[in-house]
Design a protein around this nucleic acid. Sequence first.
DNA 1: TTAACAATGTTATTTATTTCACAAATAATA
DNA 2: TATTATTTGTGAAATAAATAACATTGTTAA
Lengths: 215, 215
Amino acid sequence: MPEKPIQMNPHPSEKTIARLSLYRRCLRELAQGGSHHTYSHELAKLAGVTAAQVRRDLMVVGYDGSPRRGYEVKGLYQSIGQFLDGAIEQKAVLIGVGNLGRAILAYFHGKTPNLEIVAAFDNDPQKIDRVVMSCRCFSMTCIEEIIARERVQTAIITVPADEAQRVTDVVIQAGVQGILNFAPVRLQVPAGVFVEQMDMAVALQKVAYFSRQRQ
Amino acid sequence: MPEKPIQMNPHPSEKTIARLSLYRRCLRELAQGGSHHTYSHELAKLAGVTAAQVRRDLMVVGYDGSPRRGYEVKGLYQSIGQFLDGAIEQKAVLIGVGNLGRAILAYFHGKTPNLEIVAAFDNDPQKIDRVVMSCRCFSMTCIEEIIARERVQTAIITVPADEAQRVTDVVIQAGVQGILNFAPVRLQVPAGVFVEQMDMAVALQKVAYFSRQRQ
DNA sequence: TTAACAATGTTATTTATTTCACAAATAATA
DNA sequence: TATTATTTGTGAAATAAATAACATTGTTAA
Ligand SMILES: NC(=O)c1ccc[n+]([C@@H]2O[C@H](COP(=O)([O-])OP(=O)(O)OC[C@H]3O[C@@H](n4cnc5c(N)ncnc54)[C@H](O)[C@@H]3O)[C@@H](O)[C@H]2O)c1
Ligand SMILES: NC(=O)c1ccc[n+]([C@@H]2O[C@H](COP(=O)([O-])OP(=O)(O)OC[C@H]3O[C@@H](n4cnc5c(N)ncnc54)[C@H](O)[C@@H]3O)[C@@H](O)[C@H]2O)c1
C-alpha cells in the first residue's frame, strides 16, 4: 500500500507562523493548568481565532490529533516548538540600551530558552559594561566580532530612528538574517533579510481611530 | 449635470488605517525635508509599499492629487490627519507604570498632540504620584472617575498578564472604547470595543523563524 | 462487537486584499 | 495653441487568506 506522500507547504505564511507561536503559548498555559488533551475549538477560543483556522495552521506542523480526543497538549506543544525553533539554539542581540531596550532585556530574560538575547550594544560609554538581567552591554566596536563568533542570526533594534539604518547595515554585514525593529523607520535591507516592524505609534493611532468609529 | 456621487468606503480596513498613519509620518518627514509635492511612487518607497497601494488607500481619505504634479505634501498631510484624528481631541490613559509603561510614557510624550496620554495608573503605592514626562501616576481607585471626567476613549495596558483582564474590565466599564494591549493574553471584550494586540514575544519568534529559513 | 458519535485533516468556497491596467487629466514643451 | 509625457483615480483581475463543508476515523458506549 502506498505511503501518504509527505508534501508539506513549502512556505507557511507570516500569519500562520505568528499564530503557531500563539498556539504554543496557549498550550503552555493549558499544560500548566493540568490539561492533557485539547480540541481545535478550545485552542481557538484561547487564541482568539476559529477552530478551522487552528486546524489549517496545524497542517504545516504535521502533528496529528486524534478524532474524538483532540490533540495531546504536551505532544503538540513540542511539535510546534520543533517546527518553530529548529534544531540548533538560536541567538539574538539587542542594540540600543535605552528606555525601551532595557524593558525588553528585562522582559525576554529567560523567557525563551530556545532564543536567547546573548548580548546588548550601545554607543554611550555610560551604558557600556552595565548588566541588565545578566545580559551585558558591549561597545559597538565589538558588535561584528560577537555576532560572528556567537553565530547570532537575529537583532532587536531599539536605537533612535536616525541611527537605525546605520545599525542595520552593521548587523547585516556581521551576518544577521532577521531584524525586529522598534524604530519608526522603514529599513532598507538586501533580499533575504527579514524585517519585522513593531510600530507602536501606528498601532496606537489605529486603536484611537477605531475607538472613535465604534462609539 | 449630475455631481459625482460621493460614496466613500464605509469601512476602511485595519490595514488601510495603519498605512495611512504611516503615510502621514512619511509626509511629515518630506515636509521637514522641504518637499512641496510628492508622488504615489515616492510615498510608496518611503512607506515600503507599492504605488498602487498608496493610491488605493488614499481613496478613503478623499484627497485629490494632481496628474503630473502628484500630491501637495502639506495638504495631504492635513487631510490624512483630519481623517484619522477626527474633530475632537482624543485622550488615552496607560495602566501599569513598570519597565515598559515608563518607556512608553517617555516615548509618546508630546509626540502626538491629537492623542495625548493624560494619566497613568498603577496599584503599587510606590508608583503613585510619581510623574513621568509630565504624566502623573494615579491610584487605581481614581481610574473610573478620571476616564469618565476626561472622556478617555483609549487605554494602553502594560500590567502583568494575569492582571490584564481585570484591568480591561475596569476601563471598559469606565467608558474606554479601544485598547492597546502589551500583555501576552487575548482579552475578552464586549462587541464594539476594539483591541490591538502588541505581541513582542510572537514578533520575535516570527523573526527568528524567518531568519533561519532564509539563511 | 458494533453502531453512533464527535473531532480531525483537507478540499472547496467565500471573502479580503493587493496588483494590474488604462482612461482621464494636467503640467510642461514646442 | 497643440502636443507630449506622466501621473492620478478607479474598475477589473489576480492573489492571498479565512471560513465552510465533509469524508474519514478513532473512541466510546450500548
Ligand atoms: N520608548 C518606547 O516605548 C518606544 C516606543 C516605540 C518606539 N520606540 C523607538 O525605539 C527606539 C528607542 O527608544 P527609547 O525610548 O529606548 O530611546 P532612548 O533614547 O531611551 O534609547 C536609545 C539608546 O540607543 C543608544 N544609541 C543611540 N545611537 C546609537 C548607535 N548608533 N549605536 C548604538 N546605540 C545607540 C543610545 O545611547 C540610547 O541608549 C527609538 O527609535 C524609538 O522611536 C520607543
Ligand atoms: N517589558 C517589556 O519590554 C515587555 C515586552 C512585551 C510585553 N510586555 C508585557 O507588558 C506588561 C508589563 O511589562 P513590564 O516589563 O513593564 O512589567 P513590570 O512588572 O515592570 O510592570 C508592571 C506594572 O504594573 C503594575 N500593576 C500590576 N498589577 C496592576 C493592577 N492590577 N493595576 C494597576 N497596575 C498594576 C505593577 O505595579 C508594575 O508597576 C506585561 O504584561 C508584560 O508581559 C512587556
